[in-house]
Amino acid sequence: MRRDVFQAIADPVRRDIIKLLSAQALSVNEVAKKFEVSRPAISKHLKILKECGIIDIHQKGRERYCLIRPKSLIPAFLWIEQYQTLWEDKLDSFEVYLNQLQLQHKKRDKNE
């Protein structure tokens, strides 16, 4: 099965693993200890992240270490970035609407 970066970030556990590994390389066991899901489930998530090119897994002695490949996240970043202005505009518009409601509420309270 061909996987891509969007499949990798589609799952919240995988997003949390990416966040963890962005701070430092960790062994598979260290990653698994950070979550309340089974070790096999974490291994499956790590396998998907590896297939998507988000992480590399290297053997060091008896441990397997997971390393983030940040450049592989660029396509997702660029796709999300194109919608940043749209969402900022929507949030600004919502803030204006809330401020108007507050003013109306205050005026109504003064008149009562």
Rank of each mutant, 00 (worst) to 15 (best):
A25I: 02
F77I: 13
R3I: 08
D4I: 00
Y65S: 00
L67A: 07
I68L: 15
F6H: 08
R108D: 09
Y83G: 11
E95R: 13
N111V: 11
F6Q: 03
A32T: 13
D109F: 03
E30R: 02
I48K: 00
L86Q: 04
S27M: 04
A10E: 06
D109I: 14
L86P: 02
D4R: 00
V96C: 10
I57T: 14
H105K: 15
Q82I: 02
S93K: 09
L103D: 10
S22G: 12
I80M: 11
H58V: 07
S43R: 15
A76H: 06
K110H: 04
N111L: 06
Q82G: 08
E81D: 14
I48Y: 00
L26H: 04
I80W: 07
I57D: 06
H58T: 09
L103W: 06
R15M: 13
E51T: 02
Q7R: 00
R62W: 03
P75M: 06
G61P: 13
Y83C: 05
F6Y: 05
S27Y: 01
P12G: 04
N99M: 14
D16C: 05
N29D: 12
S93E: 12
P12T: 11
D11N: 13
A23P: 02
S72W: 02
K106G: 00
L73A: 06
R69N: 09
F77N: 02
E95S: 13
R14A: 09
K90V: 12
P75V: 08
F94M: 07
K107W: 08
P75E: 10
Q24W: 09
D89S: 04
A32D: 10
H58W: 08
L73I: 12
A41V: 10
E88Q: 07
I55M: 03
L46S: 07
L20Q: 14
L21S: 00
L49N: 00
I17P: 01
W79F: 05
R108Y: 07
K60V: 11
G61M: 05
A76T: 05
K47W: 04
G61A: 01
K33P: 02
F35V: 15
C66K: 03
L49H: 00
A8F: 01
K107N: 14
K47C: 08
R69C: 06
N99L: 14
S27E: 05
R14I: 10
Y65I: 05
I42W: 04
R39K: 15
K60Q: 08
E81N: 10
H58L: 12
E112R: 14
D16R: 10
C66A: 15
S38L: 13
L20N: 15
H45C: 08
T85N: 05
A25D: 07
L49A: 01
N29T: 09
Q100G: 14
E95N: 12
K60W: 05
T85D: 03
E112V: 14
H105T: 09
K107E: 13
G61S: 10
A8M: 05
Y97S: 11
D92Q: 11
R2N: 06
L20F: 15
E51N: 07
I9V: 12
R64L: 15
C66W: 03
Q24G: 02
R69A: 09
K44T: 14
P75C: 06
I42H: 02
K47S: 15
Y97T: 08
F77K: 05
W87I: 08
A41Y: 14
